[in-house]
Amino acid sequence: MKLLSETTVLITGGSRGIGAAIAERFATVGMRIVIHYLEAHEAANEVARRCITLGSEVMTISADLRSKEQLRRMKEKLDAEGFIPDIVVNNAGVSYYGLFTDVTEQEWDACMAINLKGTFMCTQLFVPHMVRQRYGRIINVSSVWGITGASCEVMYSAAKGGINAFTKALAKELAPSGVTVNAVAPGAVDTDMMKHLDEEERISLQAEIPAGRLANPDEIASLIYFLALPESSYITGQIISPNGGWQA
């Protein structure tokens, strides 16, 4: 079991929102951090600068999670720089909103490729290292809609529901090797994904949530940080939903 300062965490989609908050939370304890992004180069660098200020070693890296070849090259770069992840936070994802009858095959494939296939391929790439050292953490960022389903978000709900099933099954497979697998399934979080709401819709949504507000990304990051700690070794196969009592 490594010291926190000797532990490396890879955060996919780490250039903004929940991903950026996760990176900064891990940086407060001096973990070595890999910030993955697709195209947001400058945003990833800005997150990296904040993490470095907090005392962490940081590497930023770009890869399309839908491409096995790009993921292979990403791993080669991380291996070469000595940034081999002990913790993988599968945070990258996209949301889709619209009537089920309007969904095209191309949209369905794109949603599954980013949200579900990307999680599968990225996890598969780094599990062998964790198994060899008999220690590791895989934390998947899901959604409350993966538990309850959401009208007009059938694709997104299906993809996140798949991540929840993936989490439970893989946790059983890896438990004998000292590797935990959990998912965090947030409710409404104040990130760019909520920007499609106008002010009236936002007020209406907050009124539905018993806590009376959207979550702050830092609150989600704190839960993910807890699941990554060595002392969380008996928590595995869990889908934990911080949602302010919205979906109990």
Rank of each mutant, 00 (worst) to 15 (best):
T167K: 05
Y156R: 04
D218H: 13
E173A: 12
G146Q: 04
E219S: 06
A165K: 11
I220N: 06
A228M: 01
M155K: 11
V184Y: 08
T148W: 02
V189N: 03
R213M: 13
K195V: 10
D190V: 09
K168Y: 07
M155R: 10
G178K: 01
Y156T: 12
G178F: 01
E153W: 03
M194S: 13
E153L: 03
N216K: 15
E200G: 03
K195D: 13
V131H: 00
L223K: 07
K168C: 09
M155Q: 14
S142H: 08
L205E: 07
G162E: 05
A169C: 14
R137T: 01
M130Q: 08
A169W: 05
R134P: 00
I203Q: 11
R137N: 01
L170C: 06
M130C: 04
T148F: 06
V181S: 05
G161I: 05
V141Y: 06
V184D: 09
I220K: 07
M130D: 03
R202T: 14
R213W: 10
H196F: 15
P128W: 08
I220Q: 08
P186F: 14
D192G: 11
G149R: 00
H196L: 11
S177H: 15
V181G: 05
A207R: 13
Q133V: 04
T191M: 07
F166I: 08
N216M: 14
K168N: 10
E173S: 12
A215L: 15
A169G: 15
K160W: 08
V181H: 05
E199R: 12
G146C: 08
A158S: 14
E200N: 11
I138E: 00
K160Q: 09
I209R: 04
I163T: 04
P128V: 11
A215R: 02
A185M: 12
E200F: 04
S151A: 14
Q133M: 03
L229T: 15
V154I: 13
E201T: 04
I224W: 01
P128H: 08
W145Q: 08
N182A: 09
M193Q: 10
L197T: 02
R134Y: 00
D198Y: 03
S177E: 15
A185I: 12
I147S: 02
S143H: 07
L229N: 00
